[in-house]
Computed example of a mutant assay.
Amino acid sequence: MATITKKIYFDKSGYYFIGLPILVLLGFWSSYFSKLFPGTNDYNSYFHFHAVMMTLWILALIIQPILIRKKELTLHKFIGKLSYILMPLLFISVILLKHFQLQKQLEIVNGEISLSGPSPHLLLPFKDLLILGIMYIIAIVNRRDINIHARAMIATGIVFIEPALSRFLIGITDSVPVGFLTTIGLVYAILIALMIVERKQKKGRWIFPLVLSFYIIVHSLIIFQVQIGFWETFAKWFAGLPLT
């Protein structure tokens, strides 16, 4: 007799994503929230704009699968259409915040723009934007195919794990290498675990391997300090734009 493989729809993912706000709160507590709540922070509006956009996207990741489980399809579709506005705003918030932060590294040497810090670290936020953008486009294009749509949307949520978890682990270990390497190890473990769980699925299995490949490529460039000429040029050009 042929073995029947049960389809995985990931409609319970919203309950798992409830852990994301907790992780974000822990990761950004000392640098942001601890100063925000008592009103003692002096952050630029770019920080607050990014925090709001990030919070809204995480809430959408929690609410949308729950709406599917509750058969609230009309509301699910309405929030999905709102994402056409939310995702671009999230992109803009990351770009503006990173540009604002890069201004502190900006120097003018012999009339030319120079960055005092290592520009390869710019790979981290742009890697997140790349994964977010690609996965979101895949999810929207395949919005009528739950097998692909659900996996791609979950992938957009996985992107939020690294920035928050790395800050939390670096804070408790007081070591950037230990915190960073532990974080990417855990992110890889989550993706590999998902790949193992759905190894017998016939559709959508390529989503998580694709995300993992993005992570491995960018993290390898950073860990082995690979210098990329065009990336250096891009970083200087980006930092010199009159955005913030």
Rank of each mutant, 00 (worst) to 15 (best):
T156N: 06
N142H: 15
I131V: 13
R151G: 06
T183M: 08
V159K: 01
E162S: 14
F126H: 07
I113Q: 02
V109Y: 05
K71T: 09
L102A: 05
I170F: 02
V94H: 12
R144L: 11
V94W: 12
S119H: 11
R144E: 13
I170K: 08
G185M: 12
G157S: 13
K77E: 10
I148W: 04
I138A: 05
A152H: 06
S166W: 04
L102N: 11
P177G: 08
L130N: 01
L97H: 01
F160K: 06
L124C: 00
V159G: 03
M135A: 11
F160C: 10
I108M: 05
G117L: 12
T74F: 05
K81P: 00
F78L: 14
F91D: 03
V94M: 10
E112P: 03
S116Q: 11
M153C: 08
I95E: 06
Y188N: 11
I138Q: 04
M135S: 13
I113H: 02
L86S: 08
I108A: 00
I113K: 07
N147I: 04
I79N: 03
I92P: 05
K70A: 06
E162F: 08
G171C: 00
P118D: 12
I158E: 01
G133Q: 02
D174V: 03
V159W: 00
G185R: 10
F91Q: 04
G133V: 02
L115G: 07
A193T: 14
L115F: 05
I134S: 09
M195I: 14
K70F: 04
I113L: 12
T182C: 11
Y136I: 01
D128H: 13
L165K: 01
I172M: 09
L191G: 02
A164T: 10
I92A: 15
V187S: 00
S114D: 08
L186W: 02
G111V: 11
T74M: 07
H76A: 03
V176T: 14
V94Y: 12
V141G: 01
I134Y: 07
V178L: 15
G157L: 12
L89C: 05
F180E: 09
L90T: 09
K70N: 09
S114R: 13
I95G: 03
I161Q: 05
E112I: 11
L181C: 03
